[in-house]
Amino acid sequence: MGKAAIRIGTTVAALALAAIGAPAVARQQDGGRAAPKTVVPLMGPRGVDALGDGRTLVTESGGNFSLVVERRHGPARVVPLGNLPSEFPPAIAKGPHGVIYLLTGASGPPPEQRQPALRGRAAAPPATLFKWKRGWPAPKPVVDIGAYQKTDPDPWDQENLPTDSNPFGVVALDDGTVLVSDAAGNDLLRVWPKKRKIKTVARLVPRTVPVPAGLPDVPPPMGPLPPAGTPIVSEAVATSVTVGADGYWYVGELRGFPATPGTSQVWRIKPGSKNATCDPLHPRKGACTRYADGFTSITDLAAGPKGIYALELSKKSWFAFELGLPGAQEGGLFLIRHRGATPRVRELAAGRLVNPGGVDVSDHVYVAGPLFGPGALLRLR
């Protein structure tokens, strides 16, 4: 994904793929009823934590994090809170007692290739969970996710990088612990900030996917590609995590190279689990079960009273976007509801989202994007 491979893409070394055999999914569109409205313009927005009452935490390129405050009369106000110097916007989540958590991903590019605003500045440590409270001059590191992953190798690694780490999604729990999804480690972690302790909740097993048709010639190191239809074992790439209304923990997959459309899954994990396995060959077994299948390049999840929302960076896949294929800039937002054995999926704001980076739900559904360049915080009806 170019800059898009972002640290999904420095994750690209950690990107991997999945298998077919998705269960039938009942899909429909909203007919445009959920047309998004711009709340406030932002630059390269990604992190979104909707707090309710028109207040939303956001992060932008360069590491700025702010509180957006909507007003009944007049435009929304952006209240700058701080900065965590990083090439790619950190993930953000509000915890108990006014604590705000920020999560950096894999290492950025070398100093000479950084954004102009970051050149000459010390970048925040990569793969680290930070916390910040009002009045603090800067976020403080809590735990080094990357260091933990060196002690917890991925047993199904396909890239010869079993201890690689690219923390990508974060959510704070009411008990003071924090969930982190690692897109390179292909797992869900639980952090105890006060004890500076980390445990592995669940590991996502690779699945086998066919090389998609319609891709152009790809140069090394990713190419040349095998013929379309050739099966490839590929990793899950756990980009996202949320807590459902049922209290269960949900994890979404990006799906790695070659990012075959329709192979990203959403997993449902029993709270308090340790070392669970999310296995596409046994999707109904154990503490981690498959909630839904058939998605493409999921970058974020959110939960609301109506169900789980899955956000796709590109409906054609991140790889198609990186290759510049026509239409690959269109993203997707889907509401997933389970009624019986078959999940019902409804697309929201169809055709109206461009490479969105983040989603969350309070009294409205909020989406941040485009992820690259000038963007906005959007509100859906």
Rank of each mutant, 00 (worst) to 15 (best):
Lys94His: 11
Asn83Ile: 06
Gly105His: 11
Gln113Asp: 13
Asn83Lys: 14
His97Glu: 13
Gly105Trp: 05
Pro111Glu: 14
Pro110Arg: 13
Leu102Pro: 05
Pro96Val: 07
Pro89Gly: 10
Phe88Gln: 08
Gly108Val: 08
Pro85Met: 05
Glu87Thr: 13
Lys94Ser: 13
Leu84Glu: 05
Ala91Arg: 03
Pro109Thr: 11
Ser86Leu: 12
Ile92Leu: 02
Pro89His: 02
Gly98Asn: 09
Gly95Ile: 03
Pro109Trp: 08
Glu87Ser: 13
Gly105Ala: 14
Pro90Ala: 10
Pro109Arg: 14
Leu103Pro: 03
Ser107Pro: 07
Asn83Pro: 00
Lys94Ala: 15
Ile100Glu: 00
His97Thr: 09
Ala93Arg: 05
Leu102Phe: 04
Ser107Asn: 12
Lys94Ile: 00
Ser107Asp: 12
His97Ser: 14
Lys94Thr: 03
Tyr101Asp: 00
Val99Ser: 10
Pro109Ser: 14
Pro85Gln: 03
Phe88Met: 08
Gly108Lys: 02
Leu84Tyr: 08
Pro111Thr: 10
Tyr101Arg: 09
Gly82Glu: 07
Pro90Gln: 09
Gly105Asp: 03
Gly105Gln: 10
Gly108Met: 03
Ser86Arg: 11
Gly98Asp: 10
Ala91Glu: 04
Gly105Phe: 02
Gly105Asn: 13
Thr104Leu: 07
Ala106Ser: 14
Pro110Leu: 09
Ser86Asp: 06
Leu84Asn: 04
His97Tyr: 08
Tyr101Lys: 12
Pro111Asn: 12
Gly108Gln: 10
Ser86Asn: 12
Phe88Cys: 03
Thr104Glu: 05
Ile92Phe: 04
Pro96Ser: 10
Pro90Cys: 07
Gly105Glu: 14
Ile100Tyr: 02
Ser86Thr: 15
Phe88Thr: 12
Leu102Gln: 04
Pro89Cys: 01
Phe88Ala: 12
Pro109Cys: 10
Ser86His: 15
His97Asp: 14
Asn83His: 09
Pro96Arg: 14
Leu103Asn: 09
Pro109Gln: 08
Tyr101His: 08
Ser86Val: 10
Gly82Trp: 11
Pro85Thr: 04
Ala91Val: 01
Leu103Val: 05
Ser86Gly: 13
Pro90Leu: 02
Gln113Ser: 12
Val99Thr: 15
Gln113Cys: 06
Pro110Lys: 14
Leu84Ser: 01
Tyr101Met: 07
Lys94Trp: 00
Ile92Trp: 02
Pro96Leu: 07
Ile92Asp: 05
Val99Ala: 15
Ala91Phe: 03
Ile92Ser: 02
Phe88Tyr: 13
Phe88Leu: 12
Glu112Met: 11
Ser107Phe: 04
Thr104Cys: 07
Leu102Asp: 05
Gln113Ile: 00
Pro110Met: 06
Pro89Thr: 02
Pro90Gly: 02
Pro111Ala: 15
Leu103Ser: 06
Ile92Gln: 03
Thr104Gln: 06
Ile92Cys: 03
Pro96His: 07
Glu87Trp: 10
Gly95Asp: 00
Pro89Met: 06
Ser107Lys: 13
